[in-house]
């Protein structure tokens, strides 16, 4: 479940979910709901796998949305369905930083408690005939960024720059 809240020249996204994977999946939908007016018009004919790691849950959340924005902006992908798995908190020998994890394990910070996200994102290439575009999101911001446990599960807030 997500809602868009007012932030003067920008937009805020508030997401609530019972568990972390759902929180992240809903956040993906929230971001694309700002980019595309008719999410229902997106056909899930392509899959795009994504793996991210970070030792900070909020930064993992940030990097997730940042990566989705990049896929939209640079690869012209519109995505509507996200199957997310999150493992974390364990002591693991993983990289810190949050860019896609592939091929980056050498530079790892040893023994950092690490969150790991694996996702399958579904959608298709942008088709201007069918997809009505809405806002241009310039960036995900760190301002007021939060991912926290809340009544009934998890709450996340993030402001995107318009």
């Amino acid at each position: 479940m997500f809602e868009v809240f007012a932030h003067t020249a920008d937009l805020g996204l508030r997401i609530r979910a019972g568990d972390l994977p759902t929180l992240f999946a809903e956040a993906g939908k929230a971001l694309f709901s700002v980019l595309v007016e008719n999410l229902e018009a997106i056909a899930c004919r392509e899959t795009h796998p994504l793996t991210l790691e970070n030792d900070n849950l909020e930064y993992l959340f940030f990097d997730w949305l940042d990566q989705l924005l990049y896929l939209f902006d640079a690869q012209k992908l519109v995505l509507a369905d996200f199957q997310v798995t999150i493992t974390g908190g364990e002591m693991a020998n993983h990289v810190q930083g949050g860019r896609p994890a592939e091929g980056s394990s050498d530079a790892g910070k040893a023994n950092a408690p690490c969150w790991r996200l694996e996702a399958i994102c579904r959608g298709e290439k942008l088709d201007r005939q069918r997809h009505i575009l809405d806002h241009e999101v310039k960036a995900i911001t760190y301002h007021g960024l939060k991912v926290e446990k809340a009544e009934g599960g998890w709450l996340a807030e993030v402001v995107v720059d318009i």
Binding site: Y59, Y70, G98, R99, A139, I140, T141, Y142, H143, D161
Partner: peptide
Amino acid sequence: YQVCDDALHALRNAPEKYGIKLPDRQ
């Protein structure tokens, strides 16, 4: 937009590294 995003990403640990106290991560 991406130049700024990249820079902020690279600076995530800068407050600790340089002993800078900030009231807002942005």
